[in-house]
Design a protein around this nucleic acid. Structure first.
Lengths: 213, 213
DNA sequence: TCAGTTCTGGAATGGATCGTCCACAACATA
DNA sequence: TATGTTGTGGACGATCCATTCCAGAACTGA
């Protein structure tokens, strides 16, 4: 009976995300989104409620994606490769920021910075995302400890929190203007300082102009 | 000849900062600032130009203050206490975030997140601030290396970048919702993993429910 | 006391923006 | 093909907000 929708919801959300990502919540006009998606305001409001609801939707999807990327890289696999997975994940995150020439940063950080203090939904969702990332990192660090790549005397919870902080911190200092090469070095250094069993020394901690994998 | 101003400029800037800090650039109305400062719009515009200029002023002062705090804690002093100074600085930063119950975050991060991609002045100022902090940290790490508290084989530049990232990252994950205790632990852990000379092990890396100073 | 200059604060302006509304279009069923 | 229901999109109204303007106040120097 009803007339079917002429637009693809996912595609519309994608375009909306681009807008919010580039210009933030307050800085994005519904007209921008209408133009970017090709939808009229009527359809937009009919399908998504209002600006706030639309943002919550986009923000939520983004958070889900952030966790999914981490899951793809981190969850599962043999202990022997846990350290490699951790390394690749941290480097991937650094690379993402390093390549973000438009300095849009991460919508998660941007949204939280702009709205967390007044929007409980955004606050809760971002906290939830952090917790999920923390859990993934902790699991992987434990795996690396079992395999002897990380000193098992160290608290995996604490190391996970440190790595999460470094990953989010890279995003922050990148947006603040540090150059891409430095960002990549930070990822290296963070991984290099993770304590090895028996007080051995990891390579790659010392002076070196280029990245070492 | 001229009628003198009836307000204290510093005080007005302080109130304006509170507003921008709490609600961001776009989220703050000039009426809010007028009300918060008790000034009329005429005085406000007469004294500071427009909203953008006022924000630049506030933002610039904030950046200056951030560097000054770091200078107070870090610059100068005997090599023997360099490690202590580093530790106190990192813990102070973590404490600031941990105590920020209103989740306002740091105006530097907030401003950069909101405006860096379209406002060259903000972008330049935040980059400059990062560079200044980096230099201070590097100097202090070199001092700690001279005294034997940090492995001198490590690149002070890289370790400085790592610590800066951790400090800014703590702010980011704090705003994203991690609890204060975790934030304090992150500061501990970051300091604990700094490489010691000769592959010795620093205490405080391992499991421990509470903070260790 | 007077003149000249700057300060003050609220009203007015002009533009922008959110959300609604409505006439029309498109589709599924009978 | 006819009909009812929902999607569509642009025009519209109400609100909000940055900025300007102006009439009067406050102060200094003569």
């Amino acid at each position: 009976m009803p007339r079917p929708r002429a637009f693809d919801e996912r595609q519309v959300l994608e375009r909306a995300r681009e807008q919010f990502w580039a210009t933030g919540y307050a800085g994005t006009r519904m007209d921008d989104i209408a133009q970017a998606t090709g939808l009229g305001k009527g359809s937009l409001y009919g399908a998504f409620g209002d600006k706030g609801k639309l943002f919550h939707r986009v923000f939520g999807d983004w958070c889900t994606a952030v966790v999914e990327v981490a899951e793809e890289r981190l969850a599962g696999g043999p202990d022997a490769e846990a350290m490699t997975r951790l390394s690749e994940y941290v480097h991937l995150m650094a690379e993402n920021t390093a390549c973000d020439t438009e300095r849009r940063g991460c919508l998660l950080a941007k949204g939280a910075a702009e709205l967390a203090h007044r929007d409980p939904t955004v606050a809760a969702r971002s906290a939830e995302t952090m917790t999920a990332l923390l859990a993934l990192l902790r699991t992987e660090i434990s795996a690396a400890q079992r395999h002897g790549d990380i000193d098992s005397a160290a608290d995996p919870e604490r190391l996970a929190a440190l790595l999460l902080t470094v990953v989010r911190g890279i995003e922050a200092v990148g947006k603040a203007g540090l150059d891409p090469e430095t960002l990549r070095n930070i990822a290296d250094t963070a991984l290099a300082v993770l304590p090895m069993p028996g007080g051995q020394k990891r390579p790659a901690t010392g002076h070196s102009p280029a990245r070492e994998n």
